[in-house]
Design a protein around this nucleic acid. Structure first.
Lengths: 187, 187
DNA sequence: AGACGTAAATTTACACTGTAAAAATAACTT
DNA sequence: AAGTTATTTTTACAGTGTAAATTTACGTCT
């Protein structure tokens, strides 16, 4: 048995070390820089050192994406986000604060949605969204209201990351922020 | 000078042939299958035959993305989409009908946003969105109204492509379609 | 304590990838 | 018809992911 608090691998805790270096590379140089050889090189280990832990590159990136969903769930948790509005704000703010990671979390050709840790982590995050009380203004179903909210918030996140919202905000006569756009979705 | 209507290359019209095969591969096997060597192989030419036309793989994919934006503009044009609602429907329907292409159009690490053809094509499509009359229900600025609409429609498109909307629609008691979700955004 | 079994990491090897440079081919122009 | 240019191929090289065999170090057990 290995002590859970302390490291017990040859390297220290290569599992976490690889995910951490991958994350640093991700936010620094973008998703395209996430090559397995580059990650292991930056972590100071051989090219195939990740295989016993993650299988292949997809496994490593899935673990990183799972960590992203965990942090997103945390940011959207009832402690940090009381009102529905706060959940939306947390969603978009997380995306803008971690553009590379957020993008990776939805890049289904780079990760494996069936990866155990990722599947449970994403399910938990989505469940938090589904728990949003449907502000049934019109006579639409709760599912429709929830899908609409999610779509709007997700769209704002994605467009903001791609830099496509900035020109609109800039050319607006009235002062405009992304937070305002999010709040508007919850009215 | 080469005649514009007829082909005048060695191969026929390699430029278009390469984009066409790339598009077929894209919708058949996904973005991950868009390797330069595989594309040229499927087109029946040597591995480096694309270089004189597109420079590198990014150039080829940018040309393909530009074609996508052209078709999207066409689908959203005043002839095909009269009311604002129709523009949103055209947007989402195009995305769902061409999931690979639509995804590529917004994958900024695989294409070059400054690529001439792509830049003009995307600008034209976005201009069509910007021309949407702001249905100023509340006292929000036209830019805010436009950004909100775009975000919601784009979010629906992206989530639908990723298969994340299907479970919601399935578990809805009241019958629910993506079209309905789009229409709801325009009210 | 010392030997064993096992997990972790490295070395080696191979089939791919993108693309630069040089050579060859076909087309157009004059 | 000859020469110039544009298009395509051949060749070459650095880099990628990962499977297989080997080495290394750890934990365990008598």
């Amino acid at each position: 048995m290995k002590t859970p608090t302390k490291s017990s691998y040859h390297h220290g805790d290569l599992q976490k070390a690889l995910v951490n270096t991958a994350r640093l590379m991700l936010e620094k140089d973008g998703i395209a820089s996430l090559k397995l050889r580059a990650i292991t090189r930056n972590a100071g280990v051989s090219a195939t050192a990740a295989a016993p832990h993650f299988g292949n590159l997809t496994g490593l990136l899935s673990a990183l994406a799972a960590q992203g969903f965990d942090e997103l769930s945390e940011a959207m948790s009832p402690e940090h986000a009381r009102e529905p509005r706060d959940v939306g704000l947390a969603y978009v703010r997380f995306a803008i604060a971690n553009p590379g990671l957020f993008t990776l979390m939805f890049r289904s050709d780079a990760i494996d949605p069936d990866h155990p840790a990722l599947a449970t982590a994403s399910a938990r995050a989505f469940a938090r969204l589904a728990a949003l009380p449907a502000s049934d203004q019109s006579g639409i179903s709760p599912e429709a209201a929830m899908a609409s909210l999610w779509a709007k918030v997700h769209g704002l996140a994605v467009l903001a990351i791609d830099g496509l919202l900035a020109p609109l905000i800039r050319h607006s006569n009235a002062p405009l922020t992304i937070d305002q756009l999010v709040e508007e979705a919850f009215r």
